[in-house]
């Protein structure tokens, strides 16, 4: 009984370590193909549109309502000790440092990570990836690299736009519903905001974009067994992106806090 228990722990640990190893090798290979030519600019452009441009509505909506809710909730809290003037500052810092990157990352994981895993997974099970190889085209270069670069570059752009929309949402609620003076609110927004608040959020966004693309590609690439396998790959891509975003968010915050 005890022996079985230990054996189970050992087995789980070995499975976990081999998965970590596989992902590490996959990441290394992918990154190498991101920087070694040739580059497929046409594909990169397409991924910029798919991952970046078409995610604008989702990220915009998320940021808008987060900013609006944030203003309401912080007003409730801060009015208990007469610190209503802090609403603007907390909204902008909360959004730029934390909420815009994390929530956008999670939304993109659902929208883009799943799509990448499903597309590449289907290409795997229908032998399209093998076909790429037989046409002397490296699938890492052709499929993975453009998605990784696009994920890393476009998510910070999206988050920057999200920051602006989110702060506008907070501004709207504060001035229209909570009776703040617009001029004062804007002054409070920018008075204590530092460049590094925004930059740290954008760095996080870059990492999250990388995670989402990587997980989508990795699980799609390794999917097996037809429609069910592609479904599993898609689920795994989204779940692992979520978990990795939340975990790495903590460590990035520790790193970027000073």
């Amino acid at each position: 009984m005890e022996k079985n228990f230990l054996a189970t722990i050992g087995r789980v640990f070995l499975v976990f370590m081999s998965a970590v190893g596989r992902i590490t090798i996959f990441t290394g290979q992918s990154l190498r193909h991101c920087i070694v030519p040739p580059f497929y600019l046409r594909l990169l452009g397409k991924q910029f549109m798919d991952i970046g441009y078409y995610s604008l509505p989702v990220v915009g909506m998320t940021a808008l309502f987060t900013g609006m809710v944030l203003a309401l909730q912080i007003y409730v809290g801060s009015s208990r000790f007469n610190a209503e003037s802090a609403v603007a500052t907390i909204v902008v810092i909360g959004l730029t440092r934390e909420l815009a990157p994390v929530l956008s990352g999670l939304m993109i994981a659902g929208r883009v990570g799943a799509a990448i895993a499903a597309e590449i997974g289907t290409m795997r099970v229908t032998e399209q990836i093998d076909a790429l190889v037989t046409l002397s085209t490296n699938p890492f270069k052709y499929l993975v690299a453009p998605r990784l670069i696009a994920g890393m570059v476009t998510l910070p752009m999206l988050v920057l736009i999200g920051d602006i929309i989110g702060v506008s949402g907070g501004f709207l609620v504060s001035t229209e519903k909570l009776g703040f003076n617009p001029g004062n609110y804007l002054k409070n927004t920018f008075e204590f905001l530092e460049i590094r608040d925004v930059v740290s959020g954008l760095i996080k966004a870059g990492v999250f974009g990388f995670i989402v693309s990587l997980m989508g590609c990795y699980h799609g690439f390794n999917s097996t067994g037809g429609a069910q396998g592609v479904g599993r790959a898609t689920t795994n891509a989204v779940v692992s992106s979520f978990v990795l975003i939340l975990i790495s968010d903590y460590f990035l915050t520790v790193l970027l806090i000073d």
């Binding site: 229908t126 032998e127 399209q128 037989t134 002397s136």
Partner: peptide
């Protein structure tokens, strides 16, 4: 490997055309 594959062509069982 790419040099070698440049000499070859392959027809897959289900054609494996790129649907994109």
């Amino acid at each position: 490997r790419e040099q070698v594959l440049r000499k070859t062509g392959m027809l897959f069982q289900y054609a494996a055309l790129f649907d994109s």
